[in-house]
Design a binder for these strands. Structure first.
Lengths: 179, 179
DNA sequence: ACCCACTTGTAGCGAGTGCTACATGTCGCT
DNA sequence: AGCGACATGTAGCACTCGCTACAAGTGGGT
């Protein structure tokens, strides 16, 4: 087949794959382009500038996260708040999630600089996960909205502690969830 | 007074101040040196290479964190686990802590690349905070060791959610802590 | 067949990166 | 006074960065 015309749509999956492997923070145009089989010249041409590349990438990664929620996570409800939190924690502890977390923490670091694109991407992912948790709490949960916030807070804390090598603290925190 | 001889010790406070203001992730030798009133040449001379500069900086920042725990945080015990968590959360929400969090999330992102120096620094800070929490739980807490882990997990989750603009979720998570 | 807009390649710019070679300065010691 | 170790300044290297100027190719519409 003839080499398909380049476009944001054909480029983004390849760019995202490179970012998942090497991180978002120090991704630069030339390696990014090489991963997509093009030149930095064309990335600028199709996106305008590097910021736009990153912005499109953040959006695309948000889509990947949504897809991961649909496929990698169980569809049935959890038996308890604690079970729900531990399910998310255990699934995201699997090695195939490591690349995702590398870019996730880059995104959080970007948020700390008040970068709008990063804040939008990160906030969106958290809202997505919050909705998933609400929908997967036990049916008899007395207050799913509040419960999901409790579960989310514990999950995210545990994931951060895991990232810095203190997973034991976070796991103890999850285990103490009532319900 | 004559300009004191340069050394790691005289340099580090100035370097740390620059890092607190501009972040650790994209700190480079020349701006760093300028902030300390020297040249990149001298940073390499006194530290060996850039990695050693960063390593020393991480260590120094750990010391700053320990000092902050002693001065900015109350000395008396909290009335409950929840109060303990909310105290930490509220204090670290103050604007003067924003620079610290910018570098904190850079450190966490560095941990996600399995960087030993970052892992040591971040883990050390978490251990420090964990000890502080243990010591500031109510005296009648049934299990301070376990309680501190619960509190820590919630605090860190809430701080991360705050960083990405979802502080409401984290605060709801903290408010639900029993005790 | 011709034109013209869209797409791509080549080459390069100016700035910044970590780091080094080399010369010079400064200070204590004998 | 003079030596030698440590400290510092100047200049530069080879490289990467985001981005651009310019030219060439491609393909559809008339």
């Amino acid at each position: 087949m003839p080499p398909a015309r380049l476009s944001r749509e054909t480029l983004l999956p390849l760019l995202a794959a490179h970012v998942m492997e090497h991180g978002l923070a120090d991704a630069s145009l030339r390696p990014l382009a090489k991963a997509a089989g093009t030149s930095d010249r064309m990335l600028i041409y199709h996106f305008g500038n590097k910021d736009a590349v990153v912005e499109a990438l953040l959006d695309y990664l948000g889509g990947m996260f949504a897809a991961a929620l649909d496929t990698a996570f169980p569809q049935e409800r959890a038996a308890s708040r604690r079970a729900c939190a531990e399910t998310v924690y255990d699934i995201t502890a699997r090695p195939e999630f490591a690349p995702f977390f590398r870019v996730w923490w880059d995104i959080v670091a970007g948020c700390a600089d008040s970068n709008e694109a990063y804040l939008a991407a990160a906030g969106g992912m958290m809202d997505l996960l919050l909705d998933w948790v609400v929908a997967h709490l036990p049916e008899d949960d007395p207050d799913p909205t509040a419960g999901a916030r409790v579960v989310m807070t514990a999950i995210e804390g545990a994931q951060m502690l895991r990232a810095v090598g203190r997973g034991d603290i976070g796991q103890a925190g999850l285990a103490a969830l009532e319900g």
